[in-house]
Design a protein around this nucleic acid. Structure first.
Length: 170
DNA sequence: CCACGGTGGTAGA
DNA sequence: TCTACCACCGTGG
């Protein structure tokens, strides 16, 4: 763990039909999203985010999360602060953000897309370090030959998300 | 199906 | 620094 310029200031519950997610916000926007039944950091009382802005961000997050969980396209996304990652990780996360509903790419294709064609394993590592799953759609990254690959929050989630988007895999 | 080597980035010591 | 991990990928049994 390293010094993190994006200390989360507020954590809010995000109820869905699939359980209660937790969204963490910093001054620049959404900085982490947790799947249900996972440890998440505690709500910070002191915040420098205006309640009105926070409410707006959380509303956008909630709508986007629920859209993805139901296999629908997302409309507007909240501002996302990805500054906690290294340069390499951020480039991987940016590449994943370009994947639309139902689109997939392999770890190798992502590696090539960011100009690091031999860094395939490192791309896998960056996917696992993705602080905002769903909205940064790391579940749309498959292994070569349409194999499933991994998922740090549990392969059952990845299978479920892909199925809801109509994506076929082995 | 399995084993293995070549990889690049990261975290921890 | 050095080292031991890895959500990989191709090749070869």
């Amino acid at each position: 763990m390293k010094a993190d310029s994006c200390a989360s200031l507020v954590a809010l519950p995000l109820p869905t039909d699939d359980g209660i997610f937790v969204a963490e916000y910093g001054e620049k926007g959404l900085c982490r999203l947790h799947f249900p039944n996972r440890h998440s950091s505690i709500v910070g009382a002191a915040n420098s985010i205006s309640p009105r802005q926070l409410q707006r961000w959380h509303q956008l997050t909630r709508a986007a999360v629920r859209a993805i969980l139901t296999g629908n396209p997302t409309a507007e996304l909240p501002p996302m602060d990805l500054s906690s990652g290294t340069k390499f990780q951020q480039s991987v996360w940016r590449a994943m953000q370009r994947l639309k509903l139902g689109q997939t790419q392999s770890y190798g294709e992502i590696a090539a897309a960011i100009g690091c064609p031999k860094g395939v394993r490192a791309v896998g590592g960056a996917c696992g370090a993705n602080p905002i799953p769903l909205l940064v759609p790391c579940h749309r990254v498959l292994a070569a030959n349409q194999k499933l690959g991994g998922f740090s929050s549990g392969l059952d989630w990845k299978r479920k998300l892909l199925a809801r988007e109509g994506i076929l895999f082995c």
